[in-house]
């Protein structure tokens, strides 16, 4: 039995998105990036944005997003994606410009660029993957690392007196008049993944209509950085990450 015998008319119910390249990913098993990449690929295709999209990749695990999703990309310096996207969009207003950033990129080194792009109401989408850790550099503390959470730079757990509080940046963005839609999603179950896809669609649509900055935070797992199995990481995320970063819409003016 070969591939074609299995996939017959009416039997194919699921496949790799058309805009996703058929190549091995560098992401670890259980990582949320793969699912979010899939959703972005599907949404761009379904909305007919393949030729209009310009993605801005971050520094962090998603630095190679441009290897996987078949659209034009600009690879930004660490934290600067919203500034890069600001110019790309203002100079090409008919294009759909989005950033894809992790928590260190967006909420530590790039806080100023993120806040100011959102406050100007740039017509871009910011996709924000919050897994509470620096994955690419080997599991150091992120601005969103929870209190007590062990990382390579907080080996005995994050202490507020030493490291400050976890930064819950998305509600700050929701307060700014420049944002039109700010939501927090997850992709750890089929149901939440479907909701996240709808949120991405809504954000991309708002951006194309010039409604302002749309922010889609995805609370995700980093099983390697958290040193857990993918299944345990999902459970831990529900128990702990959702307490600090509860899923749901934070702002919806659409």
């Amino acid at each position: 039995m070969n591939h074609d015998d299995i996939i017959k008319q009416g039997t194919k119910v699921y496949s790799r998105p058309r805009l996703m390249d058929d190549r091995n990913m560098h992401y670890c098993p259980g990582c949320s990036h793969g699912v979010v990449h899939k959703l972005v690929s599907e949404v761009l295709d379904e909305m007919g944005l393949e030729n209009d999209a310009i993605g801005v990749a971050p520094v962090g695990c998603a630095v190679f997003a441009y290897h996987y999703i078949d659209i034009d990309w600009i690879e930004a310096a660490h934290g600067r994606a919203p500034a890069v996207a600001t110019a790309a969009k203002r100079l090409n207003p008919e294009r759909m410009v989005f950033t894809y950033q992790g928590d260190g990129d967006l909420a530590a080194i790039g806080t100023a660029e993120t806040i100011h792009a959102a406050n100007r109401g740039e017509n871009i989408v910011i996709i924000f993957i919050n897994n509470g850790i620096y994955g690419m550099t080997g599991g150091q503390m992120a601005p969103t690392t929870l209190e007590g959470m062990k990382t390579a730079t907080t080996p005995y757990g994050r202490r507020v007196d030493l490291n400050g509080y976890p930064l819950n940046i998305t509600p700050l963005l929701a307060q700014l008049p420049g944002t039109c839609y700010v939501t927090r999603q997850s992709v750890h179950t089929a149901a939440t993944t479907r909701k996240c896809k709808n949120a991405l669609k809504k954000a991309f649509k708002a951006s194309m209509e010039g409604r302002g900055t749309a922010v889609v935070e995805v609370v995700g797992t980093c099983s390697s950085g958290w040193k857990m199995s993918p299944a345990d990481a999902n459970k831990w995320m529900e128990q702990h990450m959702f307490e600090a970063y509860p899923p749901g819409d934070l702002k919806d003016t659409l």
């Binding site: 801005v56 600009i74 500034a83 996207a85 600001t86 110019a87 790309a88 203002r90």
Partner: peptide, 19 residues
């Protein structure tokens, strides 16, 4: 555009030049 910093300015230049 008046940017929020010189860091943002030059990265806007990078983004614009990339297009």
């Amino acid at each position: 555009l008046q940017a929020e910093s010189e860091v943002a300015s030059i990265n806007m230049v990078y983004g614009g030049a990339a297009t």
